[in-house]
Computed example of a mutant assay.
Amino acid sequence: MATAALAAVATLRAGPSDQGAPPPDFGPAAPARAAAASELPGPTEPSPPPAPRGERREAPPERVLVGDVGLNARVRPVGVTEQGAMAVPGDPAVAGWYRFGPAPGSPRGSAVLVGHVDGDTGALGEFAALYDVRPGARVEVRRAGAGSAVYRVVARATVPKAGLPSSTFRRTGPPVLTLVTCAPPFVPEAGGYQANLVVTAEPLPA
């Protein structure tokens, strides 16, 4: 599966792709914007420069867990493709962290984790579990060289591929964790899934 897309191929088995509609949403809806990319758009800002020598970097995420729905995925850093879309790990069991934005546990901005809902064999991806997430679900992000960053889910919204909220990749403002995967409808002739499921979680006190 191409790493640039959150779309799945046409050879799917039973699973979220067979649903006629995305799961019911909850929480406040974020404002949407038109996006130039047909897949998961990249950030609206250019990638930040490398941190100056000697400056402390944020601890990178290694694993994300949502015990209420059985999500347990290894996390690896990703960037953007030549087309400007955010890259996504090809393995549906692995989540991608947008390494040019905030890391989970950052005191500001939106830390973005993305993953496929299923793979080219029809096997469900770890992020398919987001279809069942409910308000208040605990999200733990285990980090390299630091303690876990812990969040609680406050919102879930389904948006068209071209309507991803502008706040998804923000680097300022209150800290949140943003989890993104694909959502129905699935239209093979149009390239696959036509929407994204966006889950927002707020940090819990340490």
Rank of each mutant, 00 (worst) to 15 (best):
S167A: 14
T158R: 06
T178D: 15
R156C: 01
G191I: 01
V153L: 15
P165T: 05
P175A: 00
S166P: 11
R170H: 07
Y151H: 07
P160F: 00
A195W: 12
P160G: 08
T168I: 04
V176M: 01
G163H: 05
G163Q: 12
E189S: 11
T178E: 15
T178N: 14
L177P: 02
V187Y: 11
S167P: 09
V153M: 15
A183Q: 03
R170M: 00
Y193P: 06
A157S: 09
V180Q: 13
P175E: 00
T178A: 13
V187I: 13
T178K: 13
L177W: 07
T168R: 04
T168Y: 04
P188R: 10
Y151V: 01
P160W: 03
G173Y: 13
G192N: 03
A162D: 15
F169R: 10
A162P: 02
R152F: 03
A183I: 06
P185G: 08
P160K: 03
Y151S: 04
K161Q: 11
A195D: 10
P175G: 01
V176L: 05
V153F: 14
A162F: 03
V176D: 07
Y151F: 12
V159M: 06
Y193N: 14
L179N: 05
G163E: 12
L164C: 05
Y193F: 14
R170W: 00
T158L: 05
V159N: 02
A155N: 12
P175F: 00
P185C: 14
R156Q: 13
Y151L: 04
F186D: 13
P188T: 03
L177E: 01
R171C: 04
E189W: 10
A183Y: 07
F169C: 12
S166L: 08
F186P: 09
G163Y: 02
P188F: 11
T168M: 02
T178Q: 15
L164N: 12
V180R: 10
A157L: 06
F169D: 15
A190R: 10
E189C: 00
T158S: 09
R152A: 09
V153Q: 14
A155P: 13
T178G: 02
A157D: 15
A183G: 07
G192I: 00
A157N: 11
S166H: 13
P160M: 00
A183D: 12
V187H: 06
P184A: 11
V159C: 04
S167I: 01
R156L: 05
V180I: 15
F169I: 02
P184Y: 14
V180K: 13
K161H: 14
K161L: 11
T181H: 04
K161F: 07
V154K: 02
P188W: 10
V159F: 02
K161V: 10
G192L: 01
V154H: 00
Q194W: 05
V154I: 13
P174I: 01
C182I: 12
P174G: 07
G173V: 04
G191E: 14
V187E: 11
G191M: 14
A195K: 07
G163T: 08
R156M: 11
S167L: 09
T168W: 01
P175V: 00
G173T: 02
P185R: 09
V187C: 05
S166C: 06
A183F: 10
Q194D: 09
P165N: 05
G173A: 04
S166K: 09
Y193L: 06
P185D: 09
T178F: 06
T181R: 03
V180G: 03
K161R: 08
G173K: 14
F169S: 12
A190D: 15
A162V: 08
P185M: 12
P185T: 08
L177S: 03
P175K: 02
